[in-house]
Design a protein around this nucleic acid. Structure first.
Lengths: 310, 310
DNA sequence: CACACCGTGAAAGCTATTTTCGGTTCCGTG
DNA sequence: CACGGAACCGAAAATAGCTTTCACGGTGTG
């Protein structure tokens, strides 16, 4: 009995069932930071900030450096997805070697109020590229595959999102419609719930929320979940409330934000990449019908692109 | 003199005083092989042959694999210049990571129908990164600066976009609203024209269209232009019809597309980067009011993020 | 105000690495 | 051919590092 309980807790605590992260460590740290305690954050920060330096330290050394205890260091390693500190250290060594051989760590500065416009462009582009790389590295392909399979076989699909995530929801909906899948993205939370009631086994519901705790998005997903639909959550916090009702969780990466660069920006980039992956995956699986549907929608729009040509 | 020579030999021989080898491990193995005993050679061979595999093994594991004892493994590690097996293992992990990252750039191909899901993720991420870099490089900062100035001083702003570009238009609108600017993104083309009639000098109209020849978007921009508003076009074709009525043209990059990867995907990424640049630029120019408006909207939404927290 | 719970570090427990030590083999020598 | 010595090797002891347990202190809640 007690063993069962323990085991369940063990697996749940390990958050990402995924294999140990190879290079996307900084991303993982940022993603999981919110669900960390203060002292664990200190450890995570040290690790992300100086992989090479930390790789040279023993548990005790790192504990002293961060002013915590060995236990906390091990706990942090576990949270990051490694079986223990030993393995985290190996990954760290790998990371260090990689960035040593690779290019320079580049621009890490925030955007300032008095930055010239050219700098703004460069920094934004760089940050978004970084976000894409992190997201790609951190995506669980098993979950993604399962989500694609569900979407490809769905009778109909509902996509929930509010605010910036609402646009991503609409993007996914547009794409699915283009390849002949039936999809809706209700913008009104009440309508969303009303719709969700109609879903049943064989249908799919997708919730998109960066924080993972947006009530207006969780609610319809819960309803869909309880009515037997397959549910997918796209969120930046793998442990957030929304995942309670999600059969498949797809994690987006979280970039550091600042006053002039709200989190919405990078989370949107990240979410869109995930959505694109879903789309392409579904298109692959339903290639024949998808291709003809695409061609048809293209054809239908063609005449719209000539009107004002003079 | 002779001392100098000795010293040189000592360091060059690398046997002792040198710091632990970073990557040139295979070379070191070959150099030192002759001076090794039989069982040590077996260990060294295994290590040089499969760094990644050996990095995953404990002393005992490696000893068993090579049919030797722990002591021999440690002795070999020492001979290779490391203080002990622990450090050799770290170096091995680094080496493995390095050669792993070495072979990656093979993703210039299009996405195929039978690509595994992991490849899809990698290719999409890579392509979008490429798009971002291209866009950033191709953006005319003078035009961008002028557009920002116009937006920052605008009494009100209308943003036109249809289909995928419509979402980008909404994104820009949401952002501007968040920092206290008055903005609209009419989704109905007729309403757009109706709205455009109301614009006058001091107002701004933005048209977003990848092709640059979407009638439903050009029309309202033309109306706004003729009523004296400052007009901005975000398009992938610098010479397209839409630019006729644009005071400032911002060019987005066009990536190659394919059947499974419609142009909509990269054009959207590109457009969003431009929109983000506009947003940050405006936020910089109106910093005081922007910051307080951001804070206010954040505050107003705070309570929405707790509802389903347990 | 009491209670339960979470985060935390000290210390016990255990695994992996290092060291020691003695047996074995191989070579050179008487 | 027998013997002595030296180098090589692995078993097992010793140690260092990693992991787990447990109890304390702080915080939020009924």
């Amino acid at each position: 009995m007690t063993q069962d309980v323990k085991e369940i807790f063990g697996t749940a605590g390990a958050t990402g069932g995924a294999p140990p992260a190879p290079a996307a460590l900084a991303a993982k740290v940022r993603t999981l930071a919110p669900s960390m305690t203060r002292s664990m954050q200190r450890v995570a920060e040290a690790v992300a900030g100086d992989p090479a330096g930390c790789a040279a330290l023993t548990v005790t050394g790192l504990a002293e450096l961060t002013g915590t205890s060995e236990a906390t260091v091990v706990r942090t390693a576990r949270l990051l997805g490694y079986p223990g500190y030993r393995d985290l250290r190996l990954a760290l060594a790998g990371l260090a070697a990689q960035q040593q051989s690779g290019r320079a760590p580049a621009i890490t500065t925030d955007i300032a109020v008095d930055d010239p416009i050219a700098d703004v462009v460069a920094k934004l582009a760089y940050d978004e590229q970084q976000t894409l790389a992190d997201t790609a590295a951190g995506l669980d392909t098993v979950q993604l595959g399962a989500a694609v399979a569900a979407l490809a076989g769905a009778r109909r699909t509902d996509v929930y999102g509010i605010g910036a995530s609402g646009l991503v929801a609409q993007d996914l909906t547009q794409k699915l419609l283009r390849i002949g899948r039936i999809a809706h993205a209700p913008s009104d939370p009440h309508l969303a719930v009303t719709n969700a009631v109609q879903l049943c086994a064989g249908d799919v519901a997708v919730a998109i929320t960066h924080s993972g705790s947006t009530g207006d998005v969780i609610e319809p997903l819960r309803v869909a979940f309880e009515h037997g639909a397959t549910t997918i959550a796209i969120t930046g916090r793998p442990g957030a409330p929304v995942t309670q009702y999600a059969d498949h969780v797809l994690t987006t990466s979280t970039a550091r934000e600042s006053e002039l660069r709200p989190a919405a920006m990078s989370s949107r980039t990240s979410q869109l990449l995930v959505v694109d992956c879903l789309f392409v995956g579904v298109a692959q699986r339903t290639y024949d019908s998808a291709a003809s549907a695409l061609a048809a929608s293209y054809e239908a729009l063609a005449h719209r692109h000539r009107s004002a040509s003079r």
